[in-house]
Amino acid sequence: MKIVLLPGDGIGPEVTQQARLCLELLSDRCGLNFVFEERSIGGIAIDRHGKPLPQATIGACVEADAILLGAVGGPAWDSAKLRPEMGLLELRAVLGLYANLRPARVIKGLEHLSPLRPEIAEGADVLVVRELTGGSYFGEKKLSDCVASDLCTYTRAEVERVAHVAFKAARGRSKRVTSVDKANVLATSKLWRRTVEDVARGYPDVALDHMYVDSAAMALVMHPRRFDVLLTENMFGDILSDEMSVIAGSIGLLASASIGDGGPGVFEPIHGSAPDIAGKDLANPCGAIASAAMLLEDGLGLTGEAAILRAALDDALRGTVLTADLGGDASCSAMGAEIRRLLDARLAARDAHVDLMSSNRGF
């Protein structure tokens, strides 16, 4: 299985390296035979190749089984004609990635990391399903000295396909979907709501409710356990998923998956490139490692290996080797090494259990 690595800019290379080392450990111990190929994207690609998404990167990604991305962007390219973020948007278009999955949960025993009171944060577990290729991010843009506009457009087909992703995901969780819109004001939201209701009829086992985006933002910090799957358009999802990340304790903890129909997905932490700490070995690698776990499960179908990696990550977060954003003083590489130590221990325990079961069958 071929995994393409796109480290990108800022802290992207540092956190991606820690995730790669976890995947290499799993590959070696579980006989997965992963093949890694590294390519450029974002600002570093502009510097090296003159464009944020070189053709060689596109070719490698199209042929990949899954893609692990670090982060793109930074002030070094603020005045550039081509923005680093354009590379990521183009990659999503090339691969047909229209749904972004962002899970956020408060890990039992780590409620103190959340800015919310423990009794509010406890048990929060939300999956944001964000539409990724429509809305004002991709609409026609006009800019003059006095007037600017960003056209927000959605088609029924675009809403239907991402709604199916949300309802299918809910079937594997608590079977509840909250569709977020602004249907009291926006025409696109009126179409969104009607279309989601039509799709919901095909999932009678999943409960659906609607909520305006401003009410949803408030409810997330007051009653986060109220939500299971949040389904939302592009911009609303971008904002709400970042809000949810803080509830979990740190934006450095959260992973995401961008998926389409059948091709390789892109898996990445939701944090940015953090240029102020880039190259200092201070970044939190947990979001990238959690993204590697999503890559294993959602990208490659390796649910068992993904569960072991997530369990090792949870073990580490309950320990004392933590980065500064989690209240510790560990470096990025030290936190990664601790996660791999715990991963190795879990793999050893699993192997010992398998050996014991085989021995018992011998009698």
Results as ranks from 00 to 15, higher is better:
96 G>W: 03
171 R>K: 13
95 L>M: 07
129 V>K: 00
163 A>I: 01
97 L>V: 02
128 V>P: 00
168 K>Q: 12
196 V>P: 03
105 R>M: 07
180 V>P: 08
148 A>C: 12
160 E>R: 06
208 L>I: 13
172 G>P: 07
114 S>K: 09
125 D>C: 01
181 D>H: 14
126 V>P: 00
178 T>C: 02
184 N>I: 04
168 K>M: 09
185 V>L: 08
127 L>E: 00
90 E>T: 10
181 D>Q: 04
130 R>W: 01
128 V>I: 14
208 L>T: 07
187 A>H: 11
101 L>K: 07
185 V>K: 07
126 V>I: 15
190 K>N: 14
80 A>N: 13
193 R>Q: 13
99 A>R: 00
141 K>S: 15
157 A>H: 10
108 K>F: 13
205 D>P: 09
99 A>E: 04
87 G>A: 11
196 V>H: 05
80 A>F: 11
159 V>H: 06
208 L>Q: 04
82 L>T: 08
117 R>N: 11
141 K>N: 10
80 A>K: 03
171 R>Y: 01
92 R>I: 12
202 G>S: 09
116 L>Y: 10
110 L>C: 15
189 S>G: 11
170 A>G: 07
82 L>K: 12
133 T>N: 11
159 V>P: 03
205 D>R: 10
169 A>G: 02
158 E>T: 08
177 V>I: 06
207 A>V: 12
99 A>W: 00
160 E>W: 00
113 L>C: 02
130 R>Q: 01
111 E>G: 14
88 L>I: 12
111 E>Q: 14
177 V>F: 02
156 R>V: 13
144 S>L: 06
145 D>K: 13
111 E>N: 15
120 I>W: 03
87 G>S: 04
209 D>M: 05
176 R>C: 07
127 L>V: 03
121 A>Q: 10
101 L>H: 03
187 A>R: 10
142 K>G: 13
87 G>R: 02
188 T>N: 14
105 R>D: 12
174 S>Y: 08
103 P>Y: 06
96 G>T: 10
121 A>C: 04
91 L>W: 04
113 L>Y: 09
105 R>G: 11
103 P>W: 05
197 E>H: 03
77 W>D: 05
194 R>L: 15
103 P>I: 01
165 V>M: 03
122 E>V: 05
97 L>T: 00
170 A>S: 01
192 W>M: 07
207 A>I: 04
148 A>I: 01
107 I>Q: 10
132 L>C: 05
150 D>H: 13
105 R>L: 06
96 G>V: 10
188 T>S: 15
160 E>D: 11
131 E>D: 13
156 R>W: 10
118 P>Y: 09
89 L>M: 14
158 E>N: 11
192 W>G: 03
192 W>Y: 03
133 T>F: 05
